[in-house]
Design a binder for these strands. Sequence first.
DNA 1: TAGCTCGTTGGACAA
DNA 2: TTTGTCCAACGAGCT
Length: 470
Amino acid sequence: MISTLSPLPPDTALVWFRNDLRLQDNPALAYALRNHACVLCVYVDTIDWSDPPANAWWLREALRDLSQQLDQRLLFLRGEEQAVLQSLVAENPALEAVYWNRRYEPPLREQDAAFKQWLRERGLKVASFPGNLLFEPWEINKADGSPYRVFTPFYKAARSVGYVEPHPDASAQDLQKVIGVSPASREAIAALPQRAWMRGFADHWEPTRAAGMQRLVKFSEMSLRDYDERRHIPGVPGCSRMSPWLHFGQISPREIAALLKPLPDAEPYLRELVWREFAHYILYHWPDSVDSPMDDRFKAMPWRDAPDELRRWQQGQTGIPLVDAGMRELWHTGFMHNRVRMVVASFLTKHLMIDWREGARWFEYTLLDADLANNRMGWQWCAGSGVDAAPYFRVFNPALQGERFDPDGVYVRRWVPELAQLRGKQLHRPWNPGKGAKRIANYPSPLVGLDEGRQRALQQWARISGRDSS
DNA sequence: TAGCTCGTTGGACAA
DNA sequence: TTTGTCCAACGAGCT
């Protein structure tokens, strides 16, 4: 049994770390340190390590980093969250309070509320704090009090509120109040199993807070000015790639906003940060949107059951260069450029007519930044069933997207080397070799003709929306 | 209340 | 090659 080194001293508060793996801008931690003699820092791991998702790799590194920042005083436990914490509370009568920063996903929100009630009934102090968003989801509403469904008005309302400053940090002296734990915790984190397919991630990422801050500062100095243009081009480093650090809360959105806000040209990037807020906002107000289309007409969409085609999409073997490049980038690096995410999602849901939830699940399995709110909103947007979604007739043409945003083929050649010999537009349309050009032998034919797939999707849309003329 | 404007990320086609 | 227009209709949000 992993435990603290000794019985807990009187007036100890427990700080429960979840998706806020940082010591800075951490209101729950700061409050506990300010108001209690001792603080026990705890993380409860719930991952199924028999088949962990990609971001389990990141989590392990982030926990090692956090533990190190705490001089190895992070108590690491495994199991069902409430059961683990309830037994910890029951075994340690010196625990007087439990604090955490809020999370907003169903069903975690309900579980947290129930746990809060359980703690109160046992006479413990308990409080939750805003730590992971710029705006609490209930703070921004329309004039009539109901929540927004469209981004632009939400964004305007958010801007008028202004970005909240980071919470003041606890002092180094206060951090001395954190209670030491048995070395077993550190060993247990280090011993978390990893999968062979994740080994390559370390070539692309360093999941520590310090590395994330370094990346952020570099981005603000080098790329912020051209962000609005270059963020669309997958072949160049125009994006900040902060999403995994944000997902695990190693760096908070308030810290990012505070750093970038004073800089010129920051608004396009900050607007993307507000998109992250909007995703959490939507999930908070419409928790069913995790699995149900927000547009009811899509409940009747006859999604195709095509496991072989789904597998080829997952493996980057669709025969569509930009789609395959994106899916391979995802598998090898745990990341995919945002524009390419839209292209592969459009291809899966429209050209292949495979259920957007299949795509969402695959992204959640393979993305290091896999975030329920962002991911589900993005997929619904691409499928056309979400709030403020793309109109049905907006079917991305992956070849055209490639020509437009990867004109030199830098991105496609990087991930689909078997096409490296093709030049110009041919690279994005290898099924249509020019005069005298050879077909590429070791690259598959397209799963579906781009025009054929588009027409099929439009026809199905006409059916479910009641405009079927046939 | 009624009316007006607008809606992250596009594509096809005609001129 | 570039530019403009249309693709449907509706509901959200504002005045």
